[in-house]
Amino acid sequence: MVAQIIVITSGKGGVGKTTSSASFATGLAMRGFKTVVIDFDVGLRNLDLVMGCERRVVYDLINVIHGEANLQQALIKDKRVDNLFILAASQTRDKDALTQEGVERVLQELQRDFDYIVCDSPAGIERGAIMALYFADTAVVVTNPEVSSVRDSDRILGLLSSKSKRAESKQEPIREYLLVTRYSPARVARGEMLSVNDVVDILHIPLLGVIPESQAVLNASNNGIPVSLEKESDAGQAYLDVVARFLGENRPHRFITENKKGIFGRLFGWTNREKLEDVV
């Protein structure tokens, strides 16, 4: 079987692409699939930090593209999950170092060994982002329920259907999925935040999952642990659901409605949860 290439993309920065890439790839590996996650954010690498392997990076994607190292030297094996590998971005080069031929060669070589290749796209619509999505079979569009993120996601959907290899060679189009992150059901209930249905209405692509705004995400990245390994946390469970749905399982969406409060909480707003969200 040839590995499936999945790009995690968004257009806008800071919406959770790297967090989602790390958690999604980890989730696939936990299910027994041999998975590699590649950081395409050349010059601003961060996937290594989120995955907790920043001190083990010796060679990176650009070294492999330029023939300064081979893939076996550059792939970092995760210490917690079998079947999970990380390919870091270069911190010293810029995105022009990503050549289409080079990226294609690396992906083809990886496709022989792996089941899934997860590409963590940089923000923007420049070279790095285009290279990350160009060879993709599937795209996960990460969107915050907020106007600029939704608009940028729509722009990225346009690029997926015009600037990708599948589009240019008139193959079957890239499969597109929506992943809504930093979702706050309490704010949606108050009419302060776009609901997940609003976002689906605007973007018109199938919903893969909703990740709630959660303390667990920052905690996990502070510690260099993909949040999907924090199985007790809401965000961790939400990412594991996303992986299950991606693999074809039918899982109802969770964390999209507000936690029920008692009668006093409803009257006076006395809940820790709501206070936390007000601060965040």
């Binding site: 608009r151 722009r155 949606v188 009419g191 776009l194 609003d198």
Partner: peptide
Amino acid sequence: SAAVAKERLQIIVSHE
């Protein structure tokens, strides 16, 4: 405000 956001987005996105 969420309703306002949705309305504005639908207009700009269909335009773009």
